[in-house]
Design a protein around this nucleic acid. Structure first.
Length: 290
DNA sequence: TCAGACCCTCACAG
DNA sequence: ACTGTGAGGGTCT
């Protein structure tokens, strides 16, 4: 067993923490004094970019850091993924804006719950709701002395035992019944989130779609951000805008036509491509109407 | 196939 | 300051 310590140097090239942690994949990160503070499972952790590395700090000594390396996906060779993208102007512009935008590998339940809460919400609002859920239903975690309290994301069993009113108290509005019913289905093992890991993409998606509040977009988010199905391609309003503006500026293709386009055009790492397009639109497309 | 409803909060006008 | 208005990483009917 390795010696337990509170700091780890993770050698990695081309990893943009800021872009990755604010890209709408995960909702538990804050930028404080030049570093990123967040919660992964039951760990409070602080991250900082260094030359060709990420420096990680925890509140209590850790001997096995697998949870962090798996979450960050720092072993992924991003350059080979970037070079698998289609060679066109939109992708060139998107990648040029920010190399080192990564996909995280999150816990399926937390990811699922977060994205049920995401529908017609802005990212800051999702962060607020997830934070409230943690503070009301999560478990307090160790932090550095004097640090404000932080909480783990409450497990499905805990949410399943809550009432709709309690959940609405976390400002999630009409999403509350969806979260509650989904949590109950998972608590009863009507849907087995672990078993989904070993399914094929299509079957995995079918399973997720059984959950209330999970449609195609959110299912694809979970497939991509939690299970690592890199062919999953979530299409939200931003990506839809990107497709229309960047790929079909003259025509007015129907949504179905665009979806068919995404199924083949972006190749084996379509999920990464989608994330770069999303980022591009968030930077450039704010006031542009699609 | 397709609007509308759905809770609530924040940004932005005026 | 204060109220009015619109829209926000969708889903369901």
């Amino acid at each position: 067993m390795e010696k337990a310590r509170t700091e780890l140097l993770i050698p990695v090239r081309c990893y943009d923490l800021a872009a990755t942690l604010t890209s709408g994949q995960a909702f538990r990160w804050r930028f404080v004094d030049g570093r990123w503070e967040g919660i992964i499972g039951e760990h409070w952790v602080r991250l900082k970019n260094a030359p060709d590395a990420i420096v990680a700090q925890t509140a209590i000594p850790v001997s096995n850091w697998h949870w962090l390396l798996d979450y960050l996906q720092s072993d992924v060779e991003i350059e080979s993924i970037l070079s698998s993208f289609p060679v066109d102007e939109p992708m060139r512009a998107s990648v040029g804006l920010c190399r080192g935008l990564r996909l995280l590998r999150q816990d399926p339940w937390e990811c699922l719950a977060s994205f049920i809460l995401s529908s017609t919400k802005q990212i800051v609002q999702i962060q607020q709701i997830v934070g409230l859920l943690g503070s009301r239903f999560g478990k307090p975690l160790e932090t550095p002395p004097g640090h404000e309290p932080v909480y783990s994301f409450p497990p499905a069993d805990t949410i399943a035992a809550a009432t709709e009113q309690e959940l609405r108290g976390c400002k999630m509005g009409f999403r509350a019944p969806n979260l509650l019913r989904s949590a109950r289905m998972i608590a009863r093992r009507e849907v087995d989130l672990e078993a989904i890991r070993s399914l094929e993409l299509g079957k995995a998606r079918e399973e997720l779609l059984r959950l209330p509040g999970v449609g195609n977009k959110i299912a694809n988010c979970i497939l991509l951000f939690a299970y690592g199905f890199q062919g999953a391609f979530p299409v939200d309003v931003w990506v839809m805008k990107a497709l229309r503006q960047l790929y079909f500026p003259k025509r007015r293709p129907k949504a179905e036509r665009l979806l068919r386009f995404t199924n083949t055009y972006f190749g084996p790492n379509a999920g990464y491509a989608q994330q770069y397009l999303f980022h591009y639109m968030r930077v450039h497309g704010r006031q542009a109407k699609g």
